[in-house]
Computed example of a mutant assay.
Amino acid sequence: MGHGRQIDGLTCAGAVVDKSMLKVVETMREVQPLIPRPWNRERFVAAVGDYRGRTIRLTAMDSPVLRGSPCGVWLVFEEYDQIIYDANTSDYHADQTILHEVGHMVLDHHSCGGVNASLAKLFPDVDIAAAKSVMARSRFEDPQEIEAETFADMLMASAVSRFRKSGSMDDLWG
């Protein structure tokens, strides 16, 4: 036997894997078939919307609150979900931000607070009052944020990164 450790069916070579990371890995495996080859952000988000049974709208916004920020916002409305991200960032960073918010969705995360009326001033083109909930990053060390960022990192490595056509990535993700 090697030096690996068996944790909930996953053998890891010296790594500590907790239930949170197992949840991320399992969810990533479920979502993996939805990734279009070659990568296409809009097709992926549409496929995730179909998978969840809820339309997801992407909104690139030029907002001072998003400018230079590593974060996006996920708004839950009665009929659909909306992801708002910085319109003035690179495609790569936009993908990372969007995949982070998608991570919250597929990992079944929930906002800890209600809809903040001050968001209406930050996003004047969005009907914030109609939103049922808002997921916006408040603390980087929050467990839901860590899960969503790990999910986004894994998906970026699998589908979006410059290594996406490498044999080693195909070997890793199938």
Score class of each variant (00 low, 15 high):
72 G>Y: 06
81 D>I: 02
113 G>V: 06
49 G>N: 02
81 D>F: 05
39 W>M: 02
49 G>M: 03
99 L>E: 10
68 G>P: 08
64 P>W: 06
46 A>F: 04
87 A>P: 08
94 A>G: 09
82 Q>V: 08
47 A>S: 14
38 P>F: 00
116 N>W: 09
55 T>H: 06
113 G>I: 04
105 M>E: 12
117 A>G: 06
89 T>E: 08
85 Y>D: 15
73 V>F: 12
78 E>S: 12
109 H>R: 11
62 D>Y: 01
87 A>F: 09
102 V>G: 13
58 L>P: 10
54 R>D: 05
115 V>F: 03
56 I>M: 03
99 L>P: 05
96 Q>I: 06
59 T>W: 04
81 D>E: 13
44 F>H: 02
75 L>M: 15
85 Y>V: 10
80 Y>S: 12
128 I>R: 03
126 V>Y: 01
56 I>T: 12
43 R>H: 11
120 A>H: 09
50 D>F: 05
64 P>D: 15
68 G>E: 09
61 M>F: 05
69 S>G: 06
93 H>M: 08
77 F>Y: 15
115 V>K: 03
93 H>A: 04
109 H>G: 03
111 S>D: 07
76 V>K: 13
67 R>N: 15
126 V>P: 05
97 T>W: 01
112 C>R: 12
102 V>S: 14
71 C>K: 10
107 L>A: 09
124 P>K: 04
99 L>C: 13
100 H>L: 02
91 D>K: 09
118 S>L: 07
